[in-house]
Write a protein that binds this DNA or RNA. Structure first.
Length: 348
DNA sequence: AATCCGGGGGG
DNA sequence: CCCCCAGGATT
């Protein structure tokens, strides 16, 4: 038996029972694939179930409001996935009359669908012969063939895609793709791969040359920026002043609070004399409470977040600000760190 | 080609 | 602390 045939045999015995594997409905598969981008199966699973329950068809999804989608997406991260899903659902409703495309050529045109996702939906829903290359496949191929080209270089990506294209089983591409990914996720793991029980280890270059920890090769990690978010809690006990974020920075179109960003961590008494703060609250800002600074880690940023409670209403309201009744706070899509702060303050 | 976009889990 | 996760869009 050859390499890929062995992996399929391994898959048939060892596969997990995942809900999106029991359907060929392109909409359902699309839902799962977007949710699972850069996301572990265990983390995405509850979101998949909630989305499918709330939006059983793409027509239901297309009728949603963006605030509602982002709320449902809350906590999962990479929120552009949710925003792009709504755009795509509406386009599918309008231009495809609610019938989700199944062909790679149509899928690749849609927002939020790249090479991997188009190949995944096309193969799983219609058995189109398209090889998926995700993080698992990169790792399996790099190790088995001993490929040291970086998986995040342009030439590396093309090389791995080409190899995957050459390997794919034309009789059953869906099964082949599932097997490649599941094998990478369950056995040929990033750390401590289970080489001892691997059915293809004798043909694996990484195993026979003791190079599993060195493969795959990935180019430099980007440096992390530190940012300092000083939030202001303005509340009269009934409402809270909230801010709807713009579409440029992190957490696009989600809700947080009025905030002044500083280049370093300032003590409260230095913070309140900043021009940016005075422009909002006037010359005198009374600090009622100051929460401990919390560190919040993102992929490219380290956030230092604090919240200062004041009783004085702002002298000048930003156009993106609105007073929200406290009982309505659970309806807003909040970034994780804001959700935690709000929850602690109002015991929600 | 580089950079940005979250949050969680494992070692 | 560092790396990775069923990646994609933007510049």
């Amino acid at each position: 038996m050859n390499f890929t045939h062995e992996l399929v045999q391994w898959y048939l015995v060892n596969k997990r029972d995942l809900p999106w594997r029991n359907t060929t409905d392109a909409y359902t598969i699309w839902l799962s694939e977007i949710i699972l981008q850069q996301t572990r199966v265990e983390q995405g699973m509850p979101y998949f179930n909630r989305f499918l329950e709330k939006y059983p068809t793409v027509t239901d999804f297309a009728a949603a409001h963006e605030d509602e989608v982002l709320k449902l997406w809350q906590g999962l991260g990479y929120y552009s996935r949710g925003r792009n899903m709504l755009k795509t659902a509406r386009l599918v409703q309008e231009q495809y009359h609610g019938v989700f495309p199944q062909s790679y050529e149509e899928l690749i045109k849609l927002k939020g669908i790249g090479e991997y996702t188009a190949a995944a939906i096309a193969s799983f829903s219609a058995n189109e012969v398209r090889a998926v290359v995700d993080g698992n496949v990169y790792r399996v191929l790099a190790r088995y063939y001993g490929i040291y080209d970086a998986i995040n270089s342009t030439t590396g990506k093309k090389l791995f895609q080409q190899i995957a294209n050459d390997l794919i089983n034309k009789k059953n591409p869906a099964l082949h793709n599932q097997a490649m990914m599941e094998f990478g996720a369950m056995l040929c793991k990033p750390k401590n791969p289970a080489c001892g029980i691997c059915p293809v280890r004798t043909g694996c270059v990484a195993f026979t040359t003791n190079a599993t920890t060195a493969l795959p090769v990935k180019l430099k990690t980007v440096k992390v920026k530190e940012r300092f978010f000083n939030y202001f809690l303005v509340t009269d006990g009934n409402t809270v002043l909230m801010n709807k974020r713009g579409d440029k920075d992190i957490w696009a179109n989600m809700y947080d609070l009025p905030m002044v960003e500083t280049a370093s961590l300032l003590p409260p008494h230095e913070l309140v004399i900043l021009p940016a703060v005075k422009a909002i609250f006037g010359p005198e800002v009374k600090i009622i409470e100051d929460t401990p600074v919390q560190k919040h880690i993102l992929t490219h940023q380290r956030l230092f977040v604090r919240m200062i409670k004041t009783d004085a209403p702002p002298v000048k309201l930003n156009e993106n600000w609105l007073y929200v009744p406290i009982e309505n706070l659970p309806e807003l899509a909040l970034p994780k760190i804001i959700f935690i702060l709000i929850k602690n303050i109002f015991n929600l």
